[in-house]
Design a binder for these strands. Structure first.
Lengths: 112, 112
DNA sequence: CGCATATATAAGCACAAGCACATATAAGGC
DNA sequence: GCCTTATATGTGCTTGTGCTTATATATGCG
């Protein structure tokens, strides 16, 4: 089930940046501080929100805390979107739409 | 591109209820008031947020305003999710995962 | 143990969000 | 034109969020 906390968490642009970073690979807090050009307490607070929403997990490596993505809540969001997908799939079947989503740069739309 | 306003809009539970309602069919403000058990100004304010985020559109019918869904912003959200989908698709290819998403009730999970 | 590094939390402030209540605008019917 | 119905907007209040600075906790090293 989709929790409100997940949406509140990803509604914040800095937190989306953090998610984008930890999706690629594990990141320490200081790596995120450098990358986001934000104060360390600021990053830690955002990480707290993401952790509470279940969007990241942590492991310890000496003094460092390494954060990684947890995709389950995003999967819930994906499922929440399902009934709305019919709105833009409409007369296209969902399979075709999915394939189009997988290759977005296939068609040029600047000719019209 | 995914606008922050879209996520802020759908982060509010009452607004998700409104979206769920207008997705099925057009709704007047008073219909939404009845359904959500919320004050009329409250509903209008939420509709304003949804409209600003591009998530609903309005048309006039006499004094009534009929709101309907606009799925484009949700499609942007769907696209934002795309790179994360790899996290839960992982060794399943995206096509298979999509088909599973389309028939979620296929398997019983209560036997374990 | 004492210091350095890495991270988390606390306190104070500015600002935005949601709500309730009141009021303004708009359209229809007489 | 006036009254009713339908919807939008303004105001004041309370609460929550993010940011900054300072401090606390935790681990490693000598």
């Amino acid at each position: 089930m989709l929790a409100t906390g997940v949406l509140e968490a990803i509604a914040e642009p800095n937190r989306r940046q953090i998610l984008d970073a930890v999706r690629v690979r594990e990141r320490s807090v200081s790596e995120l501080v450098d990358q986001l050009e934000m104060s360390q307490p600021g990053v830690s607070r955002h990480l707290r929100v993401l952790r509470d929403a279940g969007l990241v997990a942590v492991r310890s490596d000496a003094q460092r805390r390494l954060y990684r993505i947890r995709s389950e809540p995003l999967r819930d969001l994906d499922e929440w979107l399902e009934p709305y997908r019919a709105e833009w799939s409409d007369r296209l079947d969902a399979l075709g739409r999915h394939l189009e989503r997988s290759r977005p740069e296939q068609l040029s739309e600047e000719t019209s």
